[in-house]
Amino acid sequence: MQVAPRRRCVFCSVKRPCGRHMSRLLLFVIAVSVSILIFSVQTASQERPAGKKAARMRIIKGPALESATDKSAIIRWTTNTGSSLIEHSVVHYGTDPKNLNRRAESPNRWNQNLHYMTHRVSVMNLAPRTTYYYTVESVRGDGTPLGGRSNTISQFTTRQQQ
């Protein structure tokens, strides 16, 4: 890194430019800035009061099949945050990927101590050995959308009848 010549080095008081020391100073400033930035992001997510507007919810893991039987399945995904203390996680599903006309939802609680939220939905009354396609989102208990909607259509297959 090029540093403009200076008359006096501020670190060692030598009366000539001091490029080596200036480089260290700049690296130190960059490191401190990045640290403060990271710390402030962490602090903000930890100390967000319940009533304050949460960060925009987005999926960071999943959705994926957690488990399945011949007539039920559990879909699981993780978002970067929750939006409401009590959310209803929703799976829109169907046997035709172009027509996800069925809906399952389950209440999930947002533990604000965690820097993420796990969503799990129990999907019931399914047919055995059938492939279902689905998307997910999160809503309040009254149906108000909270975000965290998946952009792609996923799929799972139920087990053979037991």
């Binding site: 962490q42 930890q46 100390e47 203390l85 609680r109 947002w110 533990n111 604000q112 101590n113 965690l114």
Partner: peptide, 20 residues
């Protein structure tokens, strides 16, 4: 209780943050 177990999602312990 207040982290992995998710207990204080309902059984509030009066704390605001989990230790990192």
């Amino acid at each position: 209780f207040r982290g992995k177990g998710n207990c204080n999602s309902c059984h509030l312990d009066g704390r605001s943050t989990t230790l990192t």
